[in-house]
């Protein structure tokens, strides 16, 4: 749509930009898969990045997971108490944590901590010509910087998610045992009797999908950063916003697909 002066309308321009970004994102993802399966893997760098991702998020995930489990249990109790069903609390909380909360809490925290950090780091390397320096030294910066970070976040975030789930259940147990005096053995038994393989499998798939999304979005934004320090800030910010947006879309899709398999 053009204005009478021949200039494109702002809306049309933004729409063009959005479609172009989606196209470029897919091209970037295609390059990731091409480079990932070509030549030798940068194993050491992947391990280093996995450690960095875990290290960056562990404290925050521990705290958030624990509080989420505890608060969720506390808030659910009155509703169950109305029906005299507080003994169902461990099952209810474990279903909520395993099916949804652990994955979402981990993903959102990681999008903030890991995604922004990847976006800012690669963005800064781009604007200070460090990525160009790798290229002219006959080193493949995409393989060294992008592939390693995406693989690392795809591995580390599901692990963090499992950890978050366990910490969340610990928070729930603390609340239940202090209020109802439930023993650990009973809590575990009740918590896991409603959990199916499909729940755990779906959750793991979510973790992998979210980890990949956070890694690839952060790398894409950072690797294509422009305009100096302003570009670095934008890359970090966009990494978080776009990752979160995609995570929610993926959540809806994965839940819909997994419900299809539920009896």
């Amino acid at each position: 749509m053009s204005t009478p002066t021949g200039k494109k309308h702002v809306f049309t321009k933004n729409l063009d930009f959005a479609f172009l970004s989606v196209y470029n994102g897919f091209v970037f993802m295609g390059r990731f898969f091409r480079e990932a399966f070509r030549g030798r893997m940068e194993t050491q760098e992947i391990i280093k990045q996995c450690y960095a991702i875990g290290n960056k998020s562990l404290l925050l995930i521990s705290l958030t997971g624990f509080i989420t489990g505890m608060v969720f249990t506390k808030q659910s109790r009155p509703s169950l108490a109305e029906f005299g069903a507080t003994s169902w609390l461990p099952s209810l909380v474990s279903i909520a944590i395993v099916r949804a909360l652990a994955a979402l809490v981990t993903a959102l925290i990681s999008a903030g901590k890991v995604g922004s950090s990847i976006g800012a780091e690669l963005g800064s390397m781009r604007v200070t010509e460090q990525i160009d320096a790798m290229e002219v030294s006959a080193i493949n910066p995409f393989k060294y910087l992008v592939v390693t970070r995406v693989v690392a976040s795809t591995i580390a975030i599901p692990i963090l998610m499992c950890y978050c789930g366990m910490v969340g259940l610990a928070g729930a147990f603390l609340n239940v045992t202090l209020t109802e005096g439930t023993s650990l053995q009973t809590f575990i038994q009740k918590a896991f009797e409603q959990i199916t393989f499909l729940d755990i499998g779906t959750s793991l798939i979510k973790g992998i999908a979210y980890g990949f999304t956070i890694g690839i979005v952060g790398c894409y934004q950072g690797y294509n950063a422009k305009k100096g320090t302003e570009g670095v800030g934008k890359a970090a910010n966009s990494s978080v916003v776009i990752s979160m947006f995609l995570i929610f879309i993926e959540e809806v899709i994965i839940v819909q697909v997994s419900n299809y398999f539920r009896v």
Partner: peptide, 19 residues
């Protein structure tokens, strides 16, 4: 291109050292 780049040294304006 990789082979050619091995024969060329490029010194960047801002040095571009890996921080």
């Amino acid at each position: 291109l990789r082979d050619l780049r091995l024969k060329i040294g490029f010194s960047f304006q801002n040095s571009a050292l890996y921080d």
